[in-house]
């Protein structure tokens, strides 16, 4: 029914030609409509790791696009409760190279909401094959403001007082930063163990800041069942991650920094959508007491090739 509706809708759109400006515009409109329909109709496949902060060495499959929406809820001491949002678009450029783009926003109770910036990152896996420890290099440029509340990473002396700052003031403070990560990952008997070492620097001032994230996860079942199912154990993955700041280049220390411990569960639905949930608990007085993270993502197979086909 829906397919028929779409077919009918496309038939009503004029076909592109080189006859004139109006027809060219109609062509663009048709392509945009086809792309939108493609995004709706493409069969998504399963997501992978359940982590919110920790990166594993698993790369996005080449040509696939994963779209994710990851809101975080928290209430810092002395501030209003907030919702930090992170929308991610992860594309497998090559089997050894993944590119990701993030858009971020924040909504704070009694203060309103704001767009808080974007990030572009690339992950490169330098070694072919699978090893006991698999390194991945991560390079990110971020152009965000201090109202950002996505808590995508914790570095330096980040604390809950930063999150309590009023949005109207914090959004004036620009943060153009370069972030490097060394990601180490291992897979053993169904377990994934991942360790990240983070170095971040504001490009205009301030010293390098450091942080870490470690995580472990495992599916509830190691064997797949023969039929498609919703509540099978193989569709659930549980894990634990810990992350925090390690001071900066002047004071490399864990003192005065915030640290979090977060159990998590992910559920891969047969339709291909993955749901994730993680309550995180602050471990130091500088951390927010509780952060609740929710994630919804799906992966579009062979996205790159299909888009190229559509546009040619």
């Amino acid at each position: 029914m829906f397919l028929e509706f779409l077919r009918g809708f496309f038939e009503t759109l004029p076909r592109p030609s080189f006859a004139g400006h109006q027809n060219r515009r109609a062509g663009h409109l048709r392509r945009a409509a086809l792309l939108a329909a493609f995004l709706v109709l493409t069969r998504p496949v399963r997501g992978d790791d359940p982590y919110f902060v920790t990166y594993s060495h698993h790369m996005e499959e080449p040509g696939n696009l994963e779209v994710g929406f990851n809101p975080s809820f928290a209430k810092p001491k002395g501030g209003n409760s907030f919702l930090g949002t992170l929308t991610e678009y992860e594309y497998g450029t090559r089997a050894w190279w993944t590119t990701e783009f993030y858009l971020e926003g924040a909504a704070v109770r009694n203060e309103g909401s704001a767009f808080t910036g974007y990030r572009i990152e690339n992950r490169i896996r330098p070694l072919a094959g699978s090893h006991w420890i698999n390194p991945v290099f991560y390079f990110e440029f971020e152009d965000i403001n201090a109202a950002n509340k996505s808590l995508k990473e914790v570095v330096g002396f980040d604390s809950q007082s930063d999150l309590a700052e009023p949005v109207s003031e914090a959004r004036q403070e620009k943060e153009r930063e370069l972030e490097l990560k060394l990601i180490l990952g291992s897979d053993f008997k169904g377990w994934n163990l991942s360790e990240n070492f983070v170095a971040e620097r504001n490009l205009t001032h301030e010293p390098w800041e450091f942080g870490y994230a470690v995580g472990a996860s495992r599916p509830l079942a190691l064997e797949a069942s023969p039929e498609e199912c919703t509540f099978c154990r193989e569709n659930f993955r549980v894990g634990l991650e810990m992350y925090g700041g390690l001071g900066d280049a002047h004071h490399f220390t864990a003192r005065g920094t915030s640290h979090y411990l977060a159990p998590m569960v992910s559920w891969e639905l047969p339709g291909g959508v993955t749901l994730r949930l993680s309550p995180g608990f602050g471990l130091t007085p500088h951390s927010v007491r509780t952060v609740l993270r929710v994630g919804v993502s799906y992966e579009i197979q062979d996205f790159g090739r299909k888009v190229r086909k559509l546009l040619h």
């Binding site: 080449p62 040509g63 090559r94 089997a95 050894w96 072919a128 094959g129 994934n192 190691l222």
Partner: peptide, 23 residues
């Protein structure tokens, strides 16, 4: 399957547990 051939776009499927790969 575990190691892949990253140069030729074959992903490493080491994230799948061994029993799953055997299947």
């Amino acid at each position: 399957l575990k190691k892949g051939d990253l140069k030729h776009s074959m992903p490493a499927w080491s994230q799948l547990p061994e029993p799953t790969l055997w299947q």
